[in-house]
Design a protein around this nucleic acid. Sequence first.
DNA 1: CGACTTTGACCCGCGC
DNA 2: GCGCGGGTCAAAGTCG
Length: 200
Amino acid sequence: MNYPENPNPNFSYFYHDNINPSNPEIEVSDYLVFDDGFDQEDSSPSQSMVSSEKYFVGDSSSGSNGATSRNSDINGMMKKTKEDQVGHSRVAFRTKSELEVMDDGFKWRKYGKKSVKNSPNPRNYYKCSSGGCNVKKRVERDREDPSYVITTYDGIHNHESPCVVYYNTHVPLMLPSSSPPSASANWAFQKATSHSSSSF
DNA sequence: CGACTTTGACCCGCGC
DNA sequence: GCGCGGGTCAAAGTCG
């Protein structure tokens, strides 16, 4: 399994369903943004749209934005932390996959596992193993549909993915600048190396 | 031997 | 203040 579930959390974009035809097993169903500064009421409705089941979870005032029971579940899951108060990016994906841990191009080191109250499935905690990079991710199965995996990225990588290069078909080189890609941009990715993505 | 996983303990925030 | 739940730490074990 070497399909990048989250191409680059730094930039809040994502793969659409079955973007990888060789991986019909994996499907991004939901995409969530937990960014304190994220303008969920933005006038560009297509922004970050990945499927009909998309939830934006911004600050605590975001109650009426098409929230569903699942949304509230995740809201409960995302309790405010000290880091939240400082403000940083957080992105969550709900991915249909048999596999809990998918290779997103970054190297992760597991540092914890915890059973959560409202879910029969344990939650796993990972840190980016690159030195100086404090990005964390949480992985847990959707308690309502165990065929889905909820992956939450917490923080921003301060380095490039070791094995994936991303580019925009409109912009030759994506720069980690303060200007995120536009919603209409056709993002794509390619393997930078022959990273043993194998046939899978 | 180094990198990684496992797992119990610990810490902290929150609600009662 | 206390208990609960979530998040993290760190020692021990495992693997290549």
